[in-house]
């Protein structure tokens, strides 16, 4: 082969290689574009996916509520829930406030919201119905009268049915109103008796002294929950509540 023909062949080979390379580039580019178009289409159908893909920091504006936000122990709120709360913010039918767990650490849309739980306590759900009685014949009042020597006149029982051991008897001071009736108010609450399923009694005074079977922390916490939350539920039985 002479030198002239060899140069011609080299030139043809170069053109062939460039041509093949160009075709490969075009095919690759087309494939990338197709994949991108498909991803965009799927993301549009699924808002969560689009949020995850963008990896943007987001400040969630939760719908304003006239009541406190509802926290339910044991539940977990996902970002899609939060996202719905945001996107439905202007929806007039969305009157229910979003139920949200502890949410002060949501730094980005891909971070899971922390679940609130109180170790040692069961899930905060209704397990029965509460009842109240000041009858001397009430079984829990009878038990306190028998075991603690307190006159039934000072006692009010609050208990749950079915009996899961959630039974309380409140004892009040000997302070009376104009008609001579014992005043049952947060100020006159003297002791709280708890009666478990085995009918064992523990006593809380809400003070450092006089507690029986409970520590001071439990005593004062129970005392305030009874005076601030439980007693106002029964305005017919207690005064100076609510």
């Amino acid at each position: 082969m002479d030198k002239k023909n060899k140069n011609k062949l080299d030139s043809q080979s170069k053109h062939l290689i460039i041509g093949v390379f160009a075709v490969l580039v075009l095919l690759t580019f087309s494939a990338v574009m197709l994949i991108a178009a498909f991803s965009f289409s799927e993301a549009s159908k699924n808002p969560d996916m689009s949020v995850v893909d963008t990896q943007q920091d987001v400040s969630y504006q939760v719908q304003a509520s006239t009541t406190a936000p509802s926290y339910t122990v044991g539940d977990t709120v996902t970002h899609s829930t939060l996202n719905n709360a945001v996107t439905n913010n202007n929806d007039s039918d969305n009157t229910e406030a979003p139920h949200i767990e502890k949410n002060d650490s949501a730094e980005s849309t891909t971070q899971k919201v922390e679940t609130i739980s109180v170790e040692g306590l069961e899930e905060f759900t209704k397990t029965g119905d509460n009842y109240i009685s000041d009858s001397p014949d009430n079984e829990f009042i009878e038990l306190v009268v028998a075991e603690k020597g307190v006159d039934a006149e000072y006692l009010v029982a609050i208990y749950a049915v079915a009996d899961l051991g959630n039974n309380f008897v409140l004892e009040f001071d000997d302070k009376r109103d104009e008609s001579g009736k014992v005043i049952r108010s947060p100020k006159t609450l003297k002791r709280i008796y708890h009666i478990n399923k085995e009918k064992q009694i523990t006593t809380a005074t809400g003070k450092p002294t006089g507690n029986d079977g409970v520590d001071y922390g439990t005593s004062i916490m129970t005392y305030y929950l009874v005076t601030e939350v439980v007693m106002p539920e029964y305005p017919d039985y207690f005064t100076e509540v609510g």
């Binding site: 926290y71 520590d215 939350v229």
Partner: peptide, 22 residues
């Protein structure tokens, strides 16, 4: 130790309250 608290927790739940109410 926690029996009394567990019980008052259940009583509160039976009222139908949520923790925001409390």
């Amino acid at each position: 130790m926690g029996d009394m608290l567990v019980s008052i927790w259940s009583i509160l739940a039976n009222f139908g309250m949520d923790t925001g109410d409390i």
